[in-house]
Design a protein around this nucleic acid. Structure first.
Lengths: 224, 224
DNA sequence: CCCTTACGCTACGAGCCGTAGCGTAACTCA
DNA sequence: TGAGTTACGCTACGGCTCGTAGCGTAAGGG
């Protein structure tokens, strides 16, 4: 529906939107996903419960919009001069974002719900996932210009690789924080970046040989 | 409490346990996490609701036990002769496991809840996470014996690396399936394994590095 | 001034939660 | 065999949240 289609009548209060989304984040911090009720959010925001239901069909969609704002605020791909530094920075940033009490937990819960709700999945994708994915695209483009990565001819294969890297980076950070329940500190970020850039066989992250000199020549004979 | 401490009185029905856990998995498939109610599970299992509450304190703990069985059944580290093949097999296996309608979704939801519940986090850790982590340990040990990976002296650093690899592999699969909502097919498994082993920069860009690449020398990881 | 839309407020039926109470079933030990 | 102990099935209940309906009022547009 275009904005011009809603010219008549009382306009929706933009301030109410901000208040509701803010109250949602606050409630997520204090109560967590499970104990968060829409009635409570409405009370915190100072609006009627019915107003909330007029704008969002379900708790999930509300929370998606609430945390999407946090993702937009805290995710940007800054140029740090090298692919290694860029990846490391993104990992730290994403870790800090998911470590916040309202984002990571809520994202997990919403994703879980989205497996049974196609519309919600689309909303999550456009509001959160696709925007994160852009970081990978931008970072790879910069690395290519620096000569750190080879050129890619096939655009389809390029997209596939971008998805692969995105899943690897974001997945590792998410898993570390949510499932292993351990912090994404600078050392882990460095170790992971080494692993991502040089691989298991190449660099022994943490040890003496962390340089880009892969000793991967000692591959197995019977690979199959 | 040791099993000998409960010798007197009527013993708990082991069949009821199986029925309840089975009913939980079935209900997860049909209803999903959000719409799953304990009353419904009890009805499916043919037991009284009170029996259910006597054994599990909450919906979360019940579901943890229910999906932990699935993890135990479908996760084993089979020796396929090379590190590359082993990793690929684990990725496929884990993907198939998380793709089942009752496991992945429920795991996400439970993890989300566990962020606010220390006891539940411990339960998840011992029932699911630690057992998965053993796959990494076993696989790396085999690779070391084959000479595919260097020896590690520092046990502490070794544990850190195992955690890192675990988060990277499991996280990537989880993210691919749950958040990107794309399948973990053989091609993706191969691409990811290449990335994990040879890294973003390594791979075939150097030419000889990926020489002994098994089946399919058109390894695309270099064109990252 | 009328029309349209949004808002606040109240009230309501519905559903699930988690527990209490009771009588019965199963198993152990003396 | 009988007493003690524990688990089970069943019913019922207060409490909470949900999502909606209805009403009167506020804020814009033609």
């Amino acid at each position: 529906m275009s904005p011009s289609a809603r010219r008549t009548g009382r306009p929706r209060s933009a301030e109410a939107d901000r208040a509701i989304l803010g109250a949602t984040r606050a409630a997520l911090v204090e109560l967590g996903w499970a104990k968060l009720t829409l009635g409570d959010v409405a009370a915190r925001a100072g609006v009627a419960k019915t107003t909330l239901y007029r704008r969002w069909a379900s708790k999930c969609e509300l929370v998606v919009d609430a945390i999407a704002a946090a993702f937009d605020e805290h995710l940007e791909a800054t140029d740090r001069g090298s692919l290694h530094a860029d990846v490391e920075a993104v990992v730290i940033r994403l870790g800090a974002l998911l470590q916040r009490p309202e984002t990571g937990t809520a994202l997990m819960a919403v994703i879980a719900e989205a497996m049974h709700d196609e519309a919600l999945r689309c909303r999550v994708r456009s509001a959160i996932v696709d925007r994160q994915k852009r970081l990978v695209t931008v970072g790879r483009e910069r690395a290519r210009l620096r000569g750190e990565l080879p050129r890619e001819e096939d655009p389809q294969e390029s997209a596939r690789n971008a998805d692969l890297i995105f899943d690897t980076v974001a997945g590792a950070v998410l898993h570390r924080l949510m499932i292993s329940a351990e912090p994404v500190d600078p050392r882990w970020a460095r170790d992971f970046t080494d692993l991502l850039l040089y691989g298991l066989t190449g660099a022994d992250s943490g040890g003496a040989a962390a340089g880009p000199a892969p000793q991967g020549a000692q591959k197995p004979a019977g690979s199959v």
